[in-house]
Simulated assay, not measured.
Amino acid sequence: MKVWLACFLVLFALAELFDWLQEFNLPLPIYILGGAFLAVASNYDKIIGYYFADSSIEASLEQPQLDSLTPSSNPISFPVTSSVEDVQTSQTDD
C-alpha cells in the first residue's frame, strides 16, 4: 500500500510540474544565452584544459620517443612473384 501511495504522489507531482512548465515562457535571448552556456560547459575541458595543461605532457607530445633507435632488419616491401610482362604474355597466349 505504501508503494502505491508513493507512486501516486510522485506521478501527481510530475503531472502538476508538467502543467506548470507548459505555461512557463522565456524570451528568445534567454534561450540563446542558455545554449551558449551549455556549449561552453560541455567543452570546458577542451577550452580551459589547454591553458593549464601539465608541461611534461606537452613536452612528451612535442618530442615523441621511439622504442628502438635502430632501424628494423625486416624489409617493408614484399617480393613480387611474377612481373607484369609475364602476366600479359600469359594472357595473350590463352
Rank of each mutant, 00 (worst) to 15 (best):
K2Y: 05
I47W: 00
L28V: 09
E16D: 05
F37P: 07
D93T: 02
E62H: 08
S42P: 02
S83R: 13
D54H: 12
D45A: 02
F24S: 03
F37W: 15
S68V: 15
L28Y: 03
A39V: 15
F52K: 04
I47G: 00
G35D: 15
S72F: 01
A59I: 03
W20Y: 04
L66A: 07
L33W: 12
S55R: 05
T92D: 14
N74P: 00
G49M: 00
D67W: 06
S72P: 01
Q91T: 11
F37I: 15
S42Q: 11
V40D: 07
A36H: 14
S60R: 13
E62G: 01
D19P: 04
L21W: 02
T70P: 02
A39T: 15
I48N: 00
I57K: 12
L14T: 12
E85R: 07
F8W: 11
L14R: 15
N74Y: 06
T89R: 14
I48Q: 02
E62A: 04
D54A: 10
A41L: 09
F18G: 03
Y31F: 12
D94M: 09
I32Y: 09
I48V: 10
T89N: 13
L38W: 14
P71I: 01
L9G: 05
E23R: 06
F18N: 05
I30L: 09
F78W: 06
S55F: 06
I47P: 01
S68M: 06
P64T: 01
K2R: 05
N43T: 10
I32N: 06
A53Q: 12
Q22W: 04
Q65E: 10
D67M: 10
G35S: 15
N25L: 03
S90K: 13
D94T: 12
T70M: 02
F52L: 11
S42V: 14
F8G: 13
D67F: 13
E58D: 14
N43Y: 07
G49E: 00
Q22L: 08
L9V: 15
E85A: 04
F37H: 12
V84H: 14
L9D: 09
L17N: 12
I76G: 02
T89K: 13
V87I: 13
A53C: 07
L69E: 13
L11C: 12
S68N: 11
D45N: 06
D86G: 03
V87E: 04
S60D: 10
L5H: 08
M1N: 15
S42K: 10
D94Y: 12
P71G: 00
